[in-house]
Simulated scan of single mutants.
Amino acid sequence: MNKPELYVKANNPQRNDADDISDEFEEVIRKMSGRCLDIGSGPGDVVMDFILPKLNPNATIVCSDISEAVVKFGKDTYRGNSRVNFVKLDIQTPNLSRNLVGQFDHVTSFYCLHWCQDMRQVFDNIYNLLQPGGTSLLVFAANHPSLDAYKVLAATTCYKPYMTDADRYIPFYQHTDQQRKTLKTLLKEVGFEVCHCSRREKSYVFDKLEELSQYMLAVDSFIDRMPMDLRDEYKKDLVKEVARQQFIFNQNPSNEDIYSVLSIYYLFVVHIRKPL
């Protein structure tokens, strides 16, 4: 995600879920003190609005993201807050920097880890980032049908050359049987104590197709690869395919051309602890 300005205008579904889940786990977050790390912070608004206000007042938080553009946006936007810092971090790296190992008391992540394909490496890294006794609260997609649109478009002749890695952008657990059980088994194999692990159905209504379009394009990694003469068509086809995999309905009987889209998806909510 390299479009932070667009993302902060289109991430209402993510913000709604972060609001709900941070409220549910408010007591867990309030016990987080010391040095904290947030993984995949994006432009930083979720951390600033829903996580930081609930953290123990003596806690500081390092916001991290793989995108340099996003990290710069966060630094520029929140430079006046002494409790927050922004750094570049690839949570899938097999070569975690030694100066990060065991440096964090707690780790959070909202709406990031479903973009990762090497989940064992991800959880190994989180385990190694934490101090003994440290905890982590993670929220990420288990199954988001809209993202299957990438595979459909990648099979289309005109888009295929620019979407050869479409599988990278579909959640790792999207088509996995027994998703919760599979995830919980992996967490225990890595060494975590699992305090909570749930798979939840969530929904969001995009009142207009334009809102759905902004939402998808804010995280889309393919449009910038397309030749200029293909981009408008790709936008239309992406939104059409995403809408086709959701529920379309008309909220305005006086205008049959105005549609809303009900998006139903599933989230993992995980609270884990590194043993002492």
Rank of each mutant, 00 (worst) to 15 (best):
M1T: 10
M1H: 11
N2S: 09
L6A: 12
V8I: 12
A10K: 08
A10W: 06
A10D: 07
N11R: 00
N11C: 00
Q14R: 03
D19S: 10
I21G: 03
D23H: 05
V28K: 11
I29L: 15
R30K: 15
M32S: 02
S33N: 15
S33H: 15
G34K: 07
G34T: 11
C36W: 04
L37R: 01
I39W: 01
G40N: 07
P43W: 09
P43E: 13
D49M: 13
D49Y: 07
F50Y: 15
L55C: 13
N56C: 11
P57N: 08
N58S: 14
N58G: 08
A59H: 03
T60P: 01
I66W: 03
V70E: 04
G74N: 06
K75I: 10
T77G: 09
Y78E: 07
N81D: 14
D90Q: 07
I91K: 06
I91W: 03
T93P: 09
N95L: 14
N95K: 13
L96C: 11
G102L: 03
F110R: 00
Y111K: 02
C116Q: 01
Q117F: 02
M119Q: 15
Q121Y: 00
Y127W: 14
N128S: 15
N128Y: 10
L130D: 00
P132N: 13
G133T: 04
S136N: 02
L137T: 10
L138S: 04
V139W: 04
A142I: 08
A142N: 09
P145L: 03
S146N: 04
A149W: 01
V152M: 08
L153A: 05
A154L: 04
T164H: 13
T164D: 11
D165G: 10
D167Y: 09
R168F: 14
R168K: 15
P171I: 11
K181G: 01
L183H: 07
K184Y: 07
L186G: 07
E193R: 12
C195S: 10
R200A: 00
E201L: 13
S203W: 03
Y204W: 05
Y204P: 01
K208T: 15
L212G: 14
S213P: 04
L217T: 10
A218K: 06
A218N: 09
D220Q: 13
I223V: 15
D224K: 09
M226H: 04
M228Q: 13
M228L: 14
D229C: 13
L230A: 07
K236E: 12
D237E: 12
L238K: 01
E241G: 00
A243S: 15
A243P: 06
R244K: 14
Q245E: 05
F247K: 08
F247E: 11
F247P: 01
N250K: 13
Q251S: 12
N252K: 14
E256C: 11
I258R: 12
V261S: 08
L262T: 02
S263Y: 06
S263D: 12
Y265I: 02
V269L: 08
H271Y: 12
H271C: 05
I272A: 03
K274Q: 11
L276T: 12
L276H: 12
